[in-house]
Measured scan of single mutants.
Amino acid sequence: SSGGSSILDRAVIEHNLLSASKLYNNITFEELGALLEIPAAKAEKIASQMITEGRMNGFIDQIDGIVHFETR
């Protein structure tokens, strides 16, 4: 797709992000992006959206560029 990722790509990214949230206590956007094979800024945006929508527990430290995952 030309304008970003398809629905399937997005679903795969979100699935992998949720998997990462179970493996890590926290991770930088750079590391997360590398893990998900997407730019760091996109990793931040998707993580932020999932947390806001209540689909993933955690919070974002924008100063240090880190996602902190919280286990249920």
Results as ranks from 00 to 15, higher is better:
residue 12 V to I: 13
residue 70 E to W: 12
residue 11 A to W: 13
residue 50 M to E: 01
residue 23 L to T: 08
residue 25 N to R: 11
residue 14 E to T: 04
residue 14 E to Y: 06
residue 62 Q to M: 15
residue 52 T to F: 11
residue 50 M to I: 03
residue 47 A to Q: 01
residue 25 N to C: 09
residue 39 P to H: 06
residue 41 A to L: 09
residue 60 I to V: 09
residue 7 I to D: 14
residue 49 Q to H: 06
residue 19 S to Q: 15
residue 54 G to P: 00
residue 18 L to C: 06
residue 4 G to T: 11
residue 28 T to K: 05
residue 31 E to S: 07
residue 12 V to W: 13
residue 64 D to V: 10
residue 25 N to L: 12
residue 58 G to Y: 02
residue 46 I to C: 03
residue 47 A to G: 02
residue 19 S to L: 15
residue 46 I to F: 08
residue 63 I to R: 09
residue 35 L to M: 08
residue 23 L to H: 11
residue 2 S to P: 13
residue 56 M to L: 15
residue 61 D to I: 05
residue 42 K to F: 15
residue 16 N to H: 11
residue 43 A to C: 05
residue 58 G to P: 00
residue 61 D to W: 04
residue 23 L to V: 11
residue 50 M to H: 01
residue 46 I to K: 01
residue 43 A to T: 03
residue 30 E to F: 08
residue 60 I to P: 00
residue 4 G to F: 05
residue 6 S to V: 13
residue 13 I to P: 01
residue 16 N to A: 13
residue 5 S to H: 11
residue 67 V to D: 01
residue 64 D to E: 15
residue 46 I to W: 06
residue 41 A to E: 14
residue 15 H to N: 14
residue 10 R to M: 15
residue 53 E to L: 04
residue 18 L to F: 07
residue 58 G to D: 01
residue 15 H to F: 12
residue 70 E to S: 10
residue 72 R to G: 11
residue 43 A to R: 00
residue 36 L to M: 05
residue 20 A to F: 14
residue 51 I to L: 08
residue 31 E to A: 12
residue 71 T to N: 14
residue 43 A to H: 01
residue 66 I to L: 09
residue 50 M to N: 00
residue 18 L to Q: 07
residue 67 V to Q: 01
residue 67 V to N: 01
residue 1 S to W: 07
residue 40 A to S: 08
residue 33 G to S: 08
residue 31 E to C: 07
residue 45 K to W: 14
residue 52 T to M: 12
residue 65 G to T: 03
residue 17 L to G: 01
residue 56 M to H: 02
residue 10 R to W: 15
residue 49 Q to W: 07
residue 5 S to C: 07
residue 28 T to I: 02
residue 25 N to G: 09
residue 72 R to H: 12
residue 9 D to Y: 05
residue 16 N to F: 12
residue 49 Q to I: 08
residue 33 G to R: 02
residue 48 S to P: 00
residue 66 I to T: 09
residue 39 P to N: 09
residue 27 I to A: 05
residue 2 S to F: 07
residue 39 P to Y: 04
residue 32 L to R: 00
residue 33 G to M: 02
residue 23 L to W: 08
residue 34 A to D: 07
residue 8 L to R: 10
residue 12 V to M: 09
residue 7 I to T: 13
residue 60 I to F: 03
residue 66 I to M: 09
residue 65 G to S: 07
residue 31 E to M: 10
residue 29 F to D: 00
residue 11 A to C: 07
residue 20 A to Q: 07
residue 62 Q to P: 13
residue 1 S to T: 13
residue 29 F to R: 02
residue 8 L to T: 11
residue 54 G to E: 05
residue 6 S to N: 12
residue 11 A to Q: 13
residue 5 S to A: 12
residue 13 I to Y: 06
residue 36 L to Q: 00
residue 27 I to E: 00
residue 9 D to A: 06
residue 6 S to T: 11
residue 61 D to A: 05
residue 3 G to N: 13
residue 65 G to K: 12
residue 18 L to S: 04
residue 33 G to F: 02
residue 13 I to F: 05
residue 72 R to I: 14
residue 37 E to Q: 14
residue 65 G to F: 06
residue 38 I to V: 08
residue 13 I to S: 03
residue 31 E to H: 08
residue 3 G to L: 13
residue 43 A to W: 06
residue 20 A to G: 02
residue 33 G to Y: 02
residue 19 S to Y: 10
residue 15 H to Q: 14
residue 59 F to W: 15
residue 53 E to I: 05
residue 38 I to Q: 02
residue 25 N to M: 13
residue 26 N to S: 15
residue 60 I to T: 02
residue 18 L to W: 07
residue 31 E to D: 12
residue 32 L to Y: 00
residue 31 E to K: 09
residue 26 N to P: 06
residue 5 S to P: 14
residue 21 S to D: 02
residue 8 L to W: 11
residue 30 E to H: 08
residue 8 L to A: 14
residue 10 R to P: 09
residue 65 G to W: 04
residue 24 Y to F: 11
residue 7 I to W: 13
residue 30 E to R: 08
residue 10 R to G: 08
residue 22 K to S: 07
residue 10 R to Y: 14
residue 68 H to C: 06
residue 18 L to R: 06
residue 63 I to T: 09
residue 49 Q to M: 09
residue 50 M to G: 00
residue 22 K to F: 09
residue 30 E to Q: 11
residue 38 I to W: 03
residue 29 F to I: 09
residue 51 I to F: 07
residue 68 H to F: 09
residue 1 S to E: 13
residue 5 S to I: 13
residue 39 P to C: 04
residue 41 A to N: 10
residue 2 S to Q: 11
residue 59 F to I: 08
residue 21 S to Q: 05
residue 45 K to Y: 14
residue 42 K to C: 06
residue 27 I to P: 00
residue 37 E to N: 15
residue 57 N to F: 10
